Structure formats: C-alpha cells, structure tokens
Amino acid sequence: MSEYQHFINTITADVMKENIKLLEPIRNHTFTKLGGVADLFITPSSFAEIQSVVKQAKKFDIPVTILGSGSNVIVRDGGIRGIALCLTKFNQICVNEDVITAQSGAAIIGVSNFALEYELTGLEFACGIPGSVGGALYMNAGAYGGQISDVLEKATVMTWDGDILSLSKEALQLGYRKSIFMNGDYVILEAEFQLKQGDPKSIKQKMEELTIARQSKQPLEYPSCGSVFKRPPGHYAGKLIQDSELQGTRVGGAEVSKKHAGFIVNIDQATSKDYIELINVVKGTVKKNFGVDLETEVIFLGEE
C-alpha cells in the first residue's frame, strides 16, 4: 500500500484521518454482505473533503468508485482497486418551505420520514427504499407507483475535475431505472425535492400501509440487494421467475427467495461469485421458458 501513502499524506490536510481506511472489507458496507477488499476506503463528510479526494485522485491517477449505502450493488469478490468513496457520512437534510434538500449520503427512507415530520407529501413511496439519496437518483428509484423523477427538482453534482454544477431534472435524463449518472461523469452531491403541503395523518397512514406491504412481501430477514431485475415490458420479473419454479434454487450460499421470487438472498455466507452465477441461472431459465431477456437492476462493482 506504499503507493497510496503519498496520496493519503496529501489529502489529510482536508480529510480527517478517521475517514480514511486501508484494505477495508466492502462486505461490511453492503446490504448483501458481499464484496472483497477496497484498497482505500474513504468516507468524507463535507463538500471540501469530497472535492479534495476527487481532485487529488485525478492528480495521482487513482481510480475512484462511488459507494452509497450499498443497497443495490454487488461488489465482486476481488474487491475495489483504488478508492471506494463512501458518502454515507455526507448526509445532511434541510427544508425550506415545501422544498427538501438532502445530501447524497442521506438515506432516502430518512428523507421520507423528514418529509412526514414537516407535513410534506410526495415522498411516501420512498419510505421503504433501502438506499441513499445518491443511489436513488442514480437509479431513478421507485416503488409502489412513485419514482424519484416525480418529485426531484434539481441536483448538485461534482465533475471529476472538482467543479460543482447544478443540473435541472430535465438534464438528468431520468427514465425507468436509469439516469445520466450511469455515464460516470459526475459525483452526486445533493438533491432538491419539490413537495407539497399535506395532511400528516394521511401521509403517515400511507407510509404505514406501504411499510406493512413491504415487510409482508419482501425477505427482509436475509441480506440481499433488493429487487435484482428490472420489470420486462409486458411482464413482471418475479412472476416469470416464480412460474419457472426457481424459488429456493441455490448456488453456494445464495438462494432465489422463497418469499419473493424477484429477490436473491444471502442465506449462508454467499460469495459474489455465487450471486452472479445464480443470476445467470435465473436469466437462462426464464429465457428458455418464456423467451424473455431479464435485465439486472442491481449494479456490479469491483473485480473478479
């Protein structure tokens, strides 16, 4: 790790030492409990810290991989070379009238609860999405009939040169589980949500209903990356997998959930290799049975 020491010495003028770790197991930071080791694991908590890491990483030609809460990713067993930049400490939320601004590391569930606290409606659908604000923008995350693009006003981002820009919703090219961020040109810093005043009892009731629905249908008792596949046109991925009689199918410690066919769960110290092999089994079987190509929603990071 001596090749990184000069870089570390350079950024410690701006980044607190406790926010920098060498050879950090990524499995400690993902919902699946999968993933190898990151060469450098950095958890900045301010604009200045993020900017310092980004600028110096470019200067030292060190690759940077952005990691949010780790809810919708599979980090391969070989881990992450260079820097894993985890933004979960960059998590402030504030409100101005009916607009909520949230930093990218804030939990989107936390933003939904914050909206309830201030009697703002529009983010109820997000009360069960287990990801960060940045991840939610990256995927244009959605659930129960709502999606981020319904309420997003604009985003603040950083280029890999360290420049900070404000992008309108239209500039983000938000679609079904996609956005401009998938091009890899920006680090997401903040999101601004335009909400409306609402009845707190109605907001709370809706959130409770959605929470009950999620808890009753999803295998929350096991580590998982959430819904693995996008919804194919004219179909539901979970139904196709269920009708293929794949529930309970295992590769190593990974299993197609018996509770919800759209989930793959880590039931016994699975590896990323197990997970990926099982995903391919599911895709191949559904293709054979129904002629439908399943596309993964989950993001793959790191090396084999």
Rank of each mutant, 00 (worst) to 15 (best):
Y275P: 01
A254P: 03
L172Q: 07
T296G: 01
Q103Y: 04
G82N: 03
S224D: 06
A237W: 00
G284Q: 07
S2C: 09
G134D: 05
E18W: 06
I129L: 13
L137I: 12
L40D: 10
L123S: 11
V256E: 10
F31S: 14
N91C: 13
E277W: 09
E303Y: 05
A126K: 04
I212E: 12
A191W: 05
M1L: 13
K283Y: 10
K217D: 07
S46T: 13
D98V: 07
P44I: 07
I203Y: 00
N9I: 10
M139V: 12
D150W: 05
A191D: 09
E190M: 09
L87Q: 10
F300D: 07
F90H: 05
N28M: 11
L189F: 02
N9L: 13
L174G: 08
V228M: 00
K201H: 14
K154H: 11
K59R: 14
Y236F: 15
V256F: 07
S71L: 06
G82L: 02
P219R: 08
G36F: 05
K201R: 13
S216W: 09
G248K: 03
D150Q: 09
Q5G: 11
C225P: 03
C86I: 13
A106I: 03
N266I: 02
G234V: 04
I100F: 01
E277V: 10
E304P: 11
V64R: 07
S132N: 02
T88N: 08
Q242V: 06
E297L: 04
Q92H: 13
E119K: 13
Q194E: 14
I264W: 03
A57P: 00
G36E: 03
H6T: 15
F193S: 02
Q51H: 05
K230C: 04
N28D: 12
A141T: 08
L120D: 06
T121K: 06
G142K: 01
T156H: 08
S216Q: 12
V292F: 04
A136Y: 11
L189Y: 04
I66R: 10
A38K: 06
D199C: 06
V15I: 10
Q103T: 11
A13W: 07
Y176Q: 07
T101N: 04
